[in-house]
Design a protein around this nucleic acid. Structure first.
Lengths: 111, 111
DNA sequence: TTATTATATACCAATATGGGAATATATCAA
DNA sequence: TTGATATATTCCCATATTGGTATATAATAA
């Protein structure tokens, strides 16, 4: 078997930097495909392809407006990733480091 | 060009459920390859391959012990993902919804 | 209707999987 | 040394990209 499709889930969808960049741009508000093309400096088909992937996993929503299509972010679709990674958050935040120091200190005192 | 390697960065590394599962198991503490094989129910080579990917992006660390290799989590490597996704957190948490209500209320009062 | 604009899709080439099986490497035991 | 155990690596195959180019589709304008 081969690798899972990028449209399999949100984890695969955000693996590509270009797709994350699109989400970052849409975080500031709705944009048409052409506006995205300009801001990204990519060819239009590449942008449309990425948008399709993001659409299939529910990360973006579309609004038709004449011959333009306005895409907007659906941030809620990122929640599964956040929920997963949040369990590891303690491993790098300062409070944990501080606790680490306390434990080390206690350990030193034991000797 | 083809798809980016899974070892390109942490975003690609965690795209596969099996690799995330390994991280989840290691969250409880160090495990040898065989212990992982047992708990995952996968063939040993598949586990070793996944561990190599995780090693290459710095998500796990190894400790040699005779003919066994004990892997442990390096959660700090997940921070870039957390930092990226944290910017979207407001889009699904309750406080934001509450703020949304307040803003709407203020808006209504303007009229 | 015909031309133009905005997007989406199809096609092609190159490549990195990921699973399965076999094999190599390293360590320890007898 | 020989054998067994624990891991890593290699091969082969089927597949899903991703980039580039060309083309199809839809909407609007002339």
């Amino acid at each position: 078997m081969a690798r899972a499709a990028t449209t399999t889930d949100v984890f695969n969808a955000i693996a590509e930097p270009g797709r994350r960049q699109i989400l970052d741009l849409l975080a500031n508000g709705e944009l048409s495909v052409n506006e995205l093309v300009e801001q990204l400096g990519l060819a239009q088909p590449q942008v449309s392809k990425r948008l399709q992937v993001l659409r299939e996993v529910g990360l973006v929503l579309v609004r038709d407006d004449g011959r333009q299509r306005h895409y907007r972010l659906n941030g809620r679709a990122l929640k599964p990733i956040h929920d997963w990674i949040r369990r590891y958050e303690q491993m790098w935040n300062e409070r944990f480091d501080a606790l680490d120091d306390v434990l080390e200190e206690l350990h030193d005192q034991e000797d």
